[in-house]
Amino acid sequence: MADNVILRATKVTKSFGHFAVLKGVDLELQQGEFITLLGPNGAGKTTLLRILATLAKPTSGAIELAGIPLKDAKASIRGLLGVISHQTFLYEDLTARENLVFYGQLYQVAHLTERVNELLARVGLERRANDRVRNFSRGMQQRLSIARAILHNPPVLLLDEPDTGLDRQAADMLQNVIRELATGGEPRSIIMTTHNLERGLAMCDRLVVLAGGRMVREAQARDLTPENLQNWYYEAVNSRNLKP
């Protein structure tokens, strides 16, 4: 089993002075697994994801990506990660194609032109490829940002509240695209944070609840139903407030 762990966080803390955002988090992401991270605001979900994405450094603890400790990895290790967030990371004054080509250059994607065409078709934007992103709807921008994130075919995807700011329809579409990413083609390992409990459950293999900077509860998705999910979640969050 241990060989299948693609991303491993060990005793990760993030603090400044007395203020600790993460107080020792252990998390293992198996190859092909989909984990949903739940937790109230300020629980440290986003911080954890940013640390996994190399945007922030942990105060202590170690992270291994594909067996390589992030601490002494080169910049090229970021090529193993794809990140989708509620921000699109796109340049509004460039066209859809130019955005993908630019990021493709940074990731040094082989056969870039073919790959860009393939992805534009996959997210249904081939007819708008030469339009500036500024003129795209929010949903179209989000689809393009998914194409951007999987351009270099990363084995690990990190999704930071990807549905924030989308309407229901766009969020459903996003869910379908993500599910397709998770199941279709080669196995992809995914960690997603979300506020939407049902959506989080519907997509994942494993649910993890983070509260007060610690992991407080986890369960396999098959052991939970949409009906008992709410109780399960609020019990986990409230247990933090009961002081010994």
Partner: peptide, 12 residues
């Protein structure tokens, strides 16, 4: 548009 983070996430 958060593209600075996009740059920071790239292997650069």
């Amino acid at each position: 548009r958060g593209s600075l983070e996009g740059l920071l996430l790239a292997p650069v």
